[in-house]
Each structure stands twice: as C-alpha cells, then as structure tokens.
Amino acid sequence: MSSAHETLRRGGVPRRFSGLLWRNPRLGLGSLLAPPLAWFILIYLAALVVLFVAAFWSVDPFTGELDRTWTLDNFRAILTSDTYRAIALRTVAMAAAVTVTDAVLAFPFAYYMARVAGPKLRVALFALVLLPLWSSYLARVYAWRLILSHDGVLNWALKLVGLPQVDIGYSRWAMWIVFTYIWLPFMIMPLYAALERIPGNFFEASGDLGARGWRTTAKIVFPLALPGLIAGSIFTFSLTLGDYITPVLVGGPGSDFIGNVVYANVGIANNVPFAAAYATLPLLVMAIYLLVARRLGAFDMM
C-alpha cells in the first residue's frame, strides 16, 4: 500500500501542478481569469478610454488632420444644435416606445408560456420565439420593407378585406414596428424566466386569501416578474438605442438616429472626435438606465 502511495505522492508533472493549484486556490482562480480579464481590459476598456479621450479632440477643417488639444467644442456643438438634440431625443424616445410596446406584448405571451401551456406546446412556442434569431437581422428588416411598402403585403391584405390602404412604409411607424418585432424575443425570454420561477402555490395562497385574478396579477405576479421585465427592457432599450441600420432601411427622411450621425462622422465627414463625443450620449443614457434598474432589483435575477 505504501508503495502505491509513494507513486501517487511523487506523481508526474500534471499531478504535481494540480496539487500546487489545490494548495493555492488563488493561483488557480488567477490563471482561470487572466485571459478573459486581459481581453476585457485591452479590447473593451481601452477602446472605451480612447473613445472618451478622442471626444475632447478636434479635426482641422482644412487639412482634415487630428488636433489633439483639449477642447469642449464637440459637446458644445451637440448641446446647442437643434438638429443633434432632436436626433438624440428621437433615438431615446423610440427606444422607450419600443421597450414599452415589447413589454406589453411579451407579458401575456411569456405568462402563457410559463404558466399555462403544457410541456409540448411550451417547446413549440420557444422554437417560434427563438427561430427568427437564426436568420439574419438584415434579412428580417428587408422582409418588413416588403410588407410595409406602399404596394407591399400589408396593403395587399387590407385591400383584400376591403379596408383603406395605409402609407406607413419608410416612416417612424415602420421603425417602431420593425424594432418592436426584432427585439421582442429579448423581452420574452427574461420575462418567461421570471414568471416561471413564481411558485404555483403563490397563486393558490393569493386566491385562498380572497384575491381575484386581477389582484393576484397586480400584487403578486407583476412585482415578482418585475426584475425579468427590467432585464428584458435593458436589452430592448439598449439595442434600439445603438441601432443605425433599421432607420436607414425602413425609416423615411428625417429619421436619423444617434448611430447614423456617428456613422456619417466616422465615414463621410471624417470627424472621429465629433463621432466619439456623440457616441458618449447613449453610453450616458444606458448608464443612468442601468443604475435605475439596479435600484429596482433587476440584477438579482441574473
């Protein structure tokens, strides 16, 4: 027996290394986290820092060269220009509208999936919710162009049933519909998870204590699903806030988003400092949003 123990104790290099890690848990944790941490710092934080710093630079209007002197001109331009204010406001308002619409649509759907549907139907609904995510974002937006355009599927169908035609292709209505459609799964999934976690006997206890369906929904289901709702809203809100493709493809004239301005300044105008300054705006909005969400307990769910 002792010879077997001797063999084990001396062991090979891998065994000795495992023993070293066992004796020094911090070393194990460190080697596990080092690669992602390095990636995070280099690619993610460093880029963010460069963005912030560049926002205070400027571009020489004649030579097009970077001027690395500290200036607040970019921010002054953003805050004083009606156009840039309007674009920022439009972007945030659309993100808010899409979030609210998705929440309203997703709640009954997620509730049905989590608490009513049987196991087979639930799997089928899961597939229906997730399947669109397998196809390209662009393909889906182009599909909506075909549906909403003047002689598209929507008007064809309206004509078929004798209803008046609508002209919402290339408008804010179109953007609202497309955004709502595209981000809906990101609202349904966290809401489903939150609703599914509510123990069944909470419904019985609430009814037993004299509460009808609406009171149970308002006082028990909604508060317990709120963290899921907020988690979903972080997706829908931030994804809409950062988008610049849908406004180009289905928005009409005058439907530029923050992202479109940033894109134009990086590419055509070649004014990277201004683009950087404008790009800090959604970052700021999201930071505030996340702080509020944390206050409401959204991250207890994750």
Binding site: P199, N201, F202, E204, A205, S206, D208, L209, K219, I220, P223, L224
Partner: peptide
C-alpha cells in the same frame, strides 16, 4: 383559509 406546508409566504 389555508396554511400551506411550505408556507407560501410572498417574498416581496
């Protein structure tokens, strides 16, 4: 009214 085995208290 019912007293539940696992209490079923509302956690919030």
């Amino acid at each position: 009214n019912t007293v539940f085995q696992d209490y079923a208290l509302f956690p919030h």
